[in-house]
Amino acid sequence: MPVKTWDIGVRFTHWTVAGIVVWNLFGPTDQLHRVLGYIAAGLVACRFGWGFVGTPCARFSAWWPTPAHLKEYMRSLAAGAPHRHLSHNPLGGLMAIALWLLILALALSGWLTRLDAFWGEDWPHDLHTVLSIALEICVCVHVLAAIIMSMWTRDNLIGAMLTGFRRDPGDRHS
């Protein structure tokens, strides 16, 4: 039986930031690149705030990846029977945090490259490049994990991020 998981704010933020990230990773590095980078950082900041006051599945309290939760989830994966969660599983939560921090760090490093104080300095640009490569790797892992876990658990995670509904974690026969 489908249950409501992701509200429109979470889904809008997710797909808008995803589109911006794809554009900025593979598109030209021009004024639009900068503006979109700042918009992505603003959306991440809004999503972070929504983690405190948003709907139940959007709140950090529903999915924060504590060491104990990560350890328990890793054991379930190793046993071949991953625990299901209505919100993010602990590894998914850890990835969300990593992606958000990388996007914020990219916005900051991109801003630094434009400051007169760093004119002629290579390190802000080098840092921005390294962060963009790290983001590319994390995005690939994120997408691959969503596909693999969707197939493994027979719970369409990508569809859930589109529709807002997913299979009830307690429903083993859907």
Rank of each mutant, 00 (worst) to 15 (best):
I103H: 03
D116V: 06
I158W: 06
R75M: 08
L91I: 12
G80D: 04
H128R: 06
H142K: 08
A40P: 01
G170I: 00
G9Q: 13
V143T: 08
G27I: 07
C140D: 00
C138P: 00
T113V: 12
R84Q: 14
I103E: 01
H83W: 04
F48Q: 06
R154L: 05
L127F: 01
L108H: 02
I148M: 08
G37Y: 03
L106T: 01
G19E: 12
M74V: 15
C140N: 05
P2M: 13
D7A: 13
V17K: 07
T55P: 01
G110D: 09
A62L: 02
V3N: 02
A107K: 03
R166W: 02
T55I: 08
N156F: 08
E72A: 15
A81Y: 05
V17S: 12
I133S: 02
L25E: 10
N24G: 09
W6M: 01
D171I: 05
F60G: 06
R59P: 04
W63G: 03
S76F: 02
R75V: 14
I103M: 11
S76V: 08
E72D: 11
V143W: 06
A78V: 09
A96F: 03
M95S: 15
V17W: 10
I8R: 11
W63K: 06
W100F: 11
G93S: 03
D116E: 15
R166Q: 14
A145F: 09
V3W: 00
I8Q: 07
Q31G: 11
V10F: 05
A41T: 10
G42Y: 00
L99Y: 01
I158S: 07
L106G: 03
P56E: 06
I148Q: 07
F12W: 04
L144M: 14
G49T: 03
F48I: 14
R59C: 10
L70I: 14
P2Q: 12
P169S: 12
H173S: 12
N24Q: 09
P169I: 10
R172V: 15
G93N: 04
R34V: 13
G49N: 06
T113A: 14
S150T: 14
S61R: 09
T29S: 13
W152Q: 14
R167C: 12
N24K: 00
Y38E: 06
L104T: 07
P169L: 14
A68G: 09
V130E: 05
T129P: 00
F60V: 13
R11Y: 10
A58G: 08
P90V: 11
Y73F: 15
